[in-house]
Design a binder for these strands. Sequence first.
DNA 1: CGGGTGCCTTGACCCAGATCAATCCGCCCG
DNA 2: CGGGCGGATTGATCTGGGTCAAGGCACCCG
Lengths: 252, 252
Amino acid sequence: MTPIRARSTVVEAIRPPEPCVACEARVCSVCNALHPSDLDRLSAVATSFGVESGRTFIEEGALAEFFFNVTAGTAKLFKLLPDGRRQITGFASVGTFLGLAVSTTYSFGAEALEPMRICRFQRARMRDLLDEFPVLERKLLEVAAAELVAAQEQMLLLGRKTARERLASFLVARAASLCPLPDCNNRRPRNQQRVPLPMTRGDIADYLGLTIETVSRTLTRFRAEGMIDIPNASEIVIQAREALESLATGLR
Amino acid sequence: MTPIRARSTVVEAIRPPEPCVACEARVCSVCNALHPSDLDRLSAVATSFGVESGRTFIEEGALAEFFFNVTAGTAKLFKLLPDGRRQITGFASVGTFLGLAVSTTYSFGAEALEPMRICRFQRARMRDLLDEFPVLERKLLEVAAAELVAAQEQMLLLGRKTARERLASFLVARAASLCPLPDCNNRRPRNQQRVPLPMTRGDIADYLGLTIETVSRTLTRFRAEGMIDIPNASEIVIQAREALESLATGLR
DNA sequence: CGGGTGCCTTGACCCAGATCAATCCGCCCG
DNA sequence: CGGGCGGATTGATCTGGGTCAAGGCACCCG
């Protein structure tokens, strides 16, 4: 309700937030590094707020005042060229920690794909918290290292993979991210796995360095080849995971 | 002289190394985070060794036993697809810290472009060191965050920039990396700046997601347009930095 | 000093994916 | 129920950069 900053990207701010101990997103976020008994220290510096779908809540180049932690929903992270060309560098979903910038300004923008709930920390206060809990800093380093590995993988995709390989990689990665646990119920059939795509074809294109048309055509062709099913535009069903996986890894 | 591991990628190993206090690379590396009086702790776990030009000293997929710190020379870091397609994810020069992998295996390979000297730390021992010196861990987090920002910039390049924009970005970035200091002597003329290119055209191509031929043609065209000079294949001279910079940022 | 080897450059041609241009489809709203 | 709207799909065509193919050039080594 009450916008916090001049450039209102915030829809609704609640303070105090639901306490961190009760946070459902905690298990899959950096906050999990803290001992439950220390969570009230975290709650003390966190502010939770909602973001409506389509809203930009991080502006590339703006003063980087906060760190963020996604507790619900999905966002796209992107960089822009002056003429409007866009590269989506990743999608942030529940548990994602955002804002690990070096500079004083954000090096990327973020826009909600779905209604979101986000936890926000003042950078300065976060610094204190890191001093207090080295285990949290270690966790952040782990997360950063993992993202770096993912970023390098994406460079390989963008620099050297064909359109078919890019789409296959994307679908396989999406499917895998649904269920990091080996025997999640969604994974049981392994094939027939339903993969939600909360982003538009345009977003997928901007993530994979392609055009909307190529994304659409390639998906249509995957369907014709029996590798996927497309019950509706925002969901695909994997029909031949092996085939997709070997395409994704460039095995032809 | 004495190869250390089975798969000998190491040319020469010296133990004890030149002590860290005397290391010329320290000022531009993470080791600088430590107080000089603590450097002997670092020396105690470090091993320095030389790598000859062309030698692969990190094998993608191999067990990640070490962290590395480059103290002299330059390496290319790359990922491969099964059919040999290659993406160079970065170049590591003096001060670069390598091996921030999450997994137990390296997610990229590294090959020396020039004769190198490298400092090596057992991962397990490094862990102890990080526990002992949180300031070192903080420094690593900073470095990782900076690399993440650079990786996102590279994704924008690979996904959305034209060949000309890619080469312009590359040359401008190389020129800037020569001299992080604002008034380094090399920078004085700002134009006429000599930029060494220790990598081959093939390496540049694999870094920018292009082919050798496109790299060569584009550089030739830059020369014809008066933006650069090419005294020899492994060096260019920037003649019109403004023009290159606006090309690099996509301003047409 | 000559021949070889590994880049690098240049030219001719080709093609994967971009661009341009209609539809189409699902969904919302009056 | 109809019409408008924002994606998504599909078709036709174009093109930037890839591929294939000759040389060229620098450097090394015998």
